[in-house]
């Protein structure tokens, strides 16, 4: 259950809208069910009061929308940012993807967001209502079964289960209390795979990547993927492809996708959250982050606005490519 409740966010946004301090509000809108939340731009306080939501299903990172939405507006846009979203926000600013003065960033503390799939796996597919309880959720279904009690910790999104930080790194205003950068276990799974033999790793990734349907959701949702025209959509790039026609194309797409955001990926976890096939795409990104940390020193993309990404930087004493595996073995 989130510590700061919906009304606090709502009143803040409604007041600023009514006072004309912001022209619109970028937030989360209600859907058909308790859990299907859609990012939405609200233009009046009436719209906000009717449809704005802030609950345990607001996993969507709104920062990428700033790129397109600020261009459409004359005035300011109020945006709600969870701690992890603020890293993306900073990174986008570093890359000059939107104008800072057109945004009023409101930071919201986050206690972790729930994964509907995990919830459904425990409670059943036919959810009729979800009540928040102290420890998680009480879920009733349409099957006449008794309500199912689910622990919040059991149904966290992957990105939240391995949350790296509850600290907001950028905002104009903070609602509630500031959190801390956490000691997460986010590299554990990467290490587990690194410990496998080459054959095992190959088999592991074949199994995962073979599910890919090339819907491009991972790319399109990624706040670091803001190219006007992606190389995979450009018929003249020689890399355009719409279907995972062979296992090579799957490997190619995912390596290049992850490589292109290496050093710029804030580990916001959106790629894995939206993957319809549940491919653990964040592991590819985390591998790069982990390597960058090991080879070139600790670096967290987005932690500091204007910081130089490791791949557009170098030192004279950098590790030689041939020493990569020696370093890893250490």
């Amino acid at each position: 259950m989130q510590k700061v409740n919906r009304d606090v966010l709502l009143e803040k946004a409604a007041a600023m809208l009514d006072a004309g301090e912001v022209q619109a509000v970028l937030g989360w809108g209600a859907g058909e069910f308790a859990y299907d939340v859609t990012p939405r731009v609200f233009e009046t306080s009436d719209e906000l009061r009717a449809d704005f939501v802030w609950n345990d299903f607001c996993g969507a990172n709104l920062s990428k929308y700033l790129v397109s939405k600020t261009k459409k507006l004359e005035g300011k846009l109020l945006v709600f940012l969870k701690p992890c979203d603020t890293y993306s926000f900073n990174q986008l600013l570093t890359e000059h993807r939107f104008e800072r003065e057109k945004v009023y960033a409101v930071a919201v503390p986050c206690e972790g967001m729930a994964d509907v799939q995990k919830l459904k796996a425990l409670a059943g597919d036919g959810i009729s209502s979800i009540e928040s309880t102290d420890s998680g959720f009480s879920v009733t279904t349409i099957y006449d079964d008794a309500p199912v009690e689910v622990k919040g910790a059991d149904v966290l999104l992957e990105k939240c289960a391995n949350c790296k930080s509850r600290k907001h790194v950028a905002y104009d205003e903070l609602l509630g209390d500031e959190g801390e950068v956490l000691d997460s276990n986010r590299f554990d799974e990467v290490e587990r795979i690194e410990a496998m033999t080459s054959e095992e790793r190959f088999a592991f990734w074949q199994g995962e990547l073979s599910r890919c349907i090339r819907c491009n959701a991972c790319r399109d949702v990624c706040p670091a993927c803001t190219c006007e025209k992606c190389v995979f959509d450009n018929p003249n790039s020689g890399a355009e492809n719409k279907a995972p026609t062979t296992s090579f194309e799957e490997q190619m797409f995912h390596v290049i996708r992850a490589f292109h955001v290496a050093g710029r990926c804030t580990d916001c976890g959106e790629c894995s959250r939206v993957c319809p096939q549940n491919i653990p795409l964040h592991l590819l990104n985390r591998k790069f982050i982990k390597d960058i940390n090991t080879f070139y020193g600790e670096y967290q993309a987005g932690a500091e606005e204007g910081s130089r990404a490791p791949l557009v930087d170098y030192t004279l004493e950098d590790l030689e490519a041939e020493d990569v595996f020696k370093k890893e073995a250490e």
Partner: peptide, 11 residues
Amino acid sequence: EACLGCGTCTF
């Protein structure tokens, strides 16, 4: 407004 332009729904 929020559509990412991905192909998930179609696929």
